[in-house]
Amino acid sequence: MKEIGINTEYITLGKFLKYVNAVDSGAVAKMVILDGLVLVNGEVDTRRGKKLREGDVVSFEGIDYVIKYED
């Protein structure tokens, strides 16, 4: 599991996928999210604007990312 640090209260799912370089663009992020290929805390979430906060786990292409808040 990869720990990913953010320094804001939350990050949206679409932006997160770009932030960790899991996708090349927002358009690709939208497609993989709508296709149900991304799990948030073990469940499919098709909302590109889903707010991810500390402790949330995102799974995509066999990689699990956990959100950690950093000052």
Rank of each mutant, 00 (worst) to 15 (best):
L39V: 01
Y69Q: 10
I63G: 03
L13C: 05
E3A: 11
K51S: 04
D56G: 07
G36R: 04
T46E: 11
K15G: 08
K15H: 08
L13T: 00
E9Y: 06
I6E: 07
G62T: 11
D24T: 13
I67A: 02
E3P: 00
G5H: 13
R48K: 14
K68N: 11
Y10F: 15
Y19E: 12
D56Y: 08
Y65F: 15
T8M: 03
N21Q: 12
L17N: 02
D71N: 12
L34E: 15
L37I: 04
A27R: 13
G62E: 14
N41F: 03
I63D: 12
D45K: 10
A29C: 07
V20E: 07
D56H: 15
Y69C: 05
V57C: 00
K2V: 12
G36Q: 08
N7W: 10
K30M: 09
A27W: 07
V20H: 05
D35N: 15
V40T: 05
I63W: 07
A29R: 00
G42R: 12
G5I: 09
V23M: 08
V38D: 01
Y65M: 04
V66C: 10
V38T: 00
L13E: 02
G36W: 06
K15E: 10
Y10G: 03
D56S: 09
E43C: 11
F16L: 04
R47F: 01
I6T: 09
T46K: 15
N21W: 00
K18S: 06
E3C: 08
L13K: 04
D35V: 06
